[in-house]
Design a protein around this nucleic acid. Structure first.
Lengths: 121, 121
DNA sequence: TGAATACTTATCCATTTGGGTAACTATAGG
DNA sequence: CCTATAGTTACCCAAATGGATAAGTATTCA
């Protein structure tokens, strides 16, 4: 269907939950362990871990085990695919409005031509 | 949680399905009826209608009944909330890197100062 | 009026999602 | 070695999601 459809489902799906968006926002300030990420959230750790897995398998974050703690990091190019898609939509819209403007110009030109024809007659 | 959390769930959720993204892409080229939107998709009409409802209740599109056909239109400001969120994340990242740069500068300055102290001693 | 068109509603179903608890493993510290 | 800590795994559950079909309504057209 579209160029990125292989992982845009996962990407937008990962972003569709406020807990996960919170985690991403937190990670913008630097790496954090699972419990650090859990701290502001009421939910139990296993559930938060699930969110982390979703984020990781969508490619938005990377994690690594260090001793008994797991450190989570935002992937630098994390949001670029979603931004690219949005950008593409914006361009399609622009293209359409450009065509509409051309069409309106055509109508104007025709209208003028008809006036000329009238005065010529 | 975050400024837009009331409808970002719905917005990103709506974008997390390729059928719905296809519909949006199609609507970038102008209004379309339900059957026109269905045409490229194998699925049955009632299912496609569900997708249209999801898009409508997320605020991404508007629809209107004209006779027996329903016309769907992209809302002009459709993607702005999602773009705003992405923009915000990008700024947070930038802010962080700026702080990192400041920190590195501080380290450099300290290092130079220590050298000065050494040569002074 | 009668038939075709364009949705619309109502159900059904398997799978996924997002929450929960209980029990387990692996590491760090005393 | 023993215990607390930090994750992890294994389940359970209700609700949501994305597909299906069957039957209904409202317009349009001949």
């Amino acid at each position: 269907m579209d160029k990125y459809s292989d992982n845009l489902d996962q990407l937008f799906g990962a972003l569709s939950d406020s807990t996960r968006r919170d985690i991403l926002t937190r990670l913008c300030q630097g790496p954090a362990s699972v419990s650090e990420l859990k701290e502001p959230h009421a939910m139990a750790l296993p559930n938060l871990l699930k969110h982390i897995h979703v984020l990781e398998s969508s490619g938005l974050i990377e994690t690594q085990k260090q001793g008994r703690t797991r450190v989570c990091v935002l992937r630098p190019d994390a949001l670029s695919a979603t931004e690219a898609w949005l950008q593409e939509q914006r361009q399609l819209l622009h293209a359409r409005f450009d065509r509409l403007e051309d069409y309106i110009e055509t109508l104007k030109a025709q209208s003028n031509k008809e006036k000329d024809d009238d005065s010529a007659a």
